[in-house]
Design a protein around this nucleic acid. Structure first.
Length: 368
DNA sequence: AATTCGTGGCG
DNA sequence: TCGCCAAGAAT
């Protein structure tokens, strides 16, 4: 640890800090569905869902997910299609595929009990340093650091840590710092309180320092630099991609859908047949049909243009040119290519941009 | 170490 | 409108 950080840590009255922090958490913590008990499975599910995702977004997903898959056994034996459907709209879909894979591993190797050793738990798919520490401390009361973005922001201010929190290497600095100041009486509340403080008081912009329970321990507040911390370099902007996608129906009105590849963006989710348009995407309808044929082996009759749908990802921006149309008989259905009715389509998990596309199509059809 | 993985909300 | 952000992990 850097000497200036150590100096700040040494100067801190740990016991007083822990008491103020935990005391605040006891009285001010939010009632959240995953805080009703310390069931390791529920803690685990909540932590996976909460990765890069807001509490308000997670709550309804957590409740319905636990209803559908109440136990490790239930999730381990569930159909992957249903698991993905339960995650639909939450994003970062590899999280739930890793979760189900890890839950199976727990069933097979640990008798269905979530292990409580750092080594074993960190070896589970989708469980990294943060999630391992969160489960160990919250479910098992172990004094392990659980360093997320909140913790880095809060501690950077309290202890005047100027390392760039966007750098992967910085996390370790915060972990070793937490090891020095964590409460061994109540590591669960200590970790949760740091995160809760970051969520409610010590926010990224305009922190509510006047309401802060640990203001007297905060070096940044003392020096009036709370708005300069944390140091975080900004990421580069997204790349634009032009796509054409079609809702193509057969003579019975069934819609053609395709399962995306099992790796990469939106892996294993379903979509409507899509082609990427090159630089000169101002091509004519006939060429577009040829383009679809090259990739899917059929040539649709494109009848209508339904406009465009924009969708922003973390690292890229899609602009989907939406079409509707039909095709003649000879589609060969497979595990990757299916013809489904408007009823059946509800059973398949679609990324948000394609949900928008379907909605757009149904409204167009109704108005027509 | 730097990228790739979603989505929705907010100033 | 746009950049930033939210309880990160895998590659």
């Amino acid at each position: 640890m850097a000497t200036d950080i150590k100096k700040c840590v040494d100067k801190m009255d740990k016991k007083s800090f822990q008491d103020d922090l935990i005391g605040w958490f006891v009285s001010e913590q939010r009632e959240l569905p995953w805080r009703k008990d310390q069931d390791p499975y529920k803690v685990w599910v909540s932590e996976i869902m909460l990765q890069q995702t807001r509490v308000d977004t997670v709550i309804p997903y957590f409740n319905s997910f636990l209803e559908k898959f109440p136990t490790i056994e239930a999730l381990a034996s569930a159909d992957e299609e249903k698991v993905l459907k339960a995650w639909e709209g939450l994003g970062y879909y590899s999280r739930v595929r890793n979760l189900q894979s890890a839950v199976k591993e727990v069933r097979e190797n640990y008798g269905g009990q979530v292990p409580d050793s750092p080594e074993k738990i960190a070896s589970l798919k989708g469980v990294g340093p943060y999630t391992a520490g969160a489960i160990l401390s919250i479910a098992y009361g172990k004094p392990e650091p659980a360093v997320d973005g909140n913790v880095m922001r809060v501690l950077s201010r309290i202890l005047l840590i100027w390392d760039d929190i966007a750098k992967p290497a910085s996390r370790k600095i915060f972990e070793s710092t937490v090891r020095e100041i964590i409460s061994h009486e109540n590591p669960s509340y200590f970790n949760q309180a740091l995160m809760e403080l970051g969520a409610l008081i010590c926010t990224p912009t305009s922190p509510s320092c006047l309401l802060c329970p640990v203001r007297d321990h905060c070096a940044a507040f003392d020096e009036g630099v709370q708005n300069e911390l944390p140091v975080k370099t900004k990421k580069k902007k997204q790349k634009n991609i032009e796509l054409a996608a079609g809702i193509f129906t057969d003579d019975q009105g069934r819609i053609l859908i395709r399962k995306r590849p099992e790796t990469g963006l939106l892996a294993n989710l379903w979509e409507f047949p899509t082609v990427e348009l090159g630089l000169g995407f101002q091509r004519q309808r006939e060429q577009l049909a040829v383009h679809f044929e090259e990739i899917y082996g059929f040539s649709p009759k494109i009848s209508e243009s339904l406009g465009e749908i924009g969708h922003v990802f973390s690292h890229l921006i899609w602009n989907i040119h939406v079409f509707s149309g039909s095709f003649d008989g000879d589609i060969i259905e497979s595990t990757q290519l299916k013809l489904v009715t408007e009823e059946e389509i509800q059973e398949y998990a679609f990324p948000v941009p394609y949900q928008k596309m379907l909605k757009q199509y149904l409204e167009f059809k109704k108005a027509d």
